[in-house]
Design a protein around this nucleic acid. Structure first.
Length: 212
DNA sequence: GCGACGATTCGCT
DNA sequence: GCGAATCGTCGCG
């Protein structure tokens, strides 16, 4: 069992870069921590991310800086969560990055459970651990993340959702490829902004996408 | 108001 | 591989 003392809370400055693609890559190997009332805390290593870069990215909810009730949190200063409901069923967890009015976000697509394993299996009703967090909707269910945690501050030790890094840096084998499920995004669809730790058995489906 | 649809998942064929 | 589930959001009238 790993102890949280072996990790450092990722500082606010990390989220403020305007290079969302670079941050998406850097998040690989960092750790998502959730402490939900009434449940054991969970820690999980981030193994897959996708960058969404408004205003020019047609895949982004904030394409052309379209600001609505839902996307408003994307325009806030980086370092907070953007959580929305997809297909009326699944919650999606994003990390908002960049300075105020820079509507960049990073979708967390897969994580590898580290602690809170039993709670994760219980929430997912799955015994096979590698099928608990290998998708953006799955990991939210597994870690107890829902829209009530939208706009949570990820660098605040008092938040229910936080991001940590290990004290000792690690080298990851990273591959990039087109993002999943954005066929509607035209020429933005093939941008290689999906990042995975190639050797991880905990990344999501599909292995490849093809938008023609 | 109303209708179309989505940064997905699961179960069945 | 395919279709259903399921509802908030958004654009249009």
């Amino acid at each position: 069992m790993q102890k949280l003392e072996d990790f450092d809370l990722v500082e606010k400055a990390f989220y403020l870069s305007t290079d969302v693609v670079d941050i998406a890559r850097s998040l690989l190997g960092m750790y998502l921590y959730t402490s939900i009332l009434g449940a054991p805390p969970c820690l999980a290593k981030i193994v897959e991310t996708e960058a969404y870069r408004a205003p020019d990215d047609k895949g982004s909810h904030a394409y052309q800086n379209k600001k609505t009730k839902r996307t408003e949190v994307m325009f806030r200063t980086g370092g907070i969560s953007y959580i929305y409901l997809c297909y009326g069923i699944h919650e999606m967890f994003n990390v908002v990055t960049g300075p105020k009015d820079c509507a960049h976000a990073i979708l967390i697509r897969a994580v590898e459970p580290v602690t809170g394993i039993e709670e994760i299996k219980k929430r997912r009703k799955k015994e096979n651990l590698s099928d608990c967090c290998n998708g953006p909707g799955k990991l939210c269910a597994a870690l107890g993340i829902d829209r009530s945690f939208n706009a949570s501050t990820l660098y605040d030790p008092a938040s229910n959702i936080r991001i940590y890094r290990k004290n000792t840096p690690i080298i990851n084998d990273i591959i990039s490829s087109p993002r999943v499920g954005i066929a509607y995004a035209g020429e933005s669809a093939n941008l290689p902004w999906r990042f995975r730790i190639e050797s991880s058995p905990f990344t999501s489906k599909p292995d490849e996408v093809n938008y023609g």
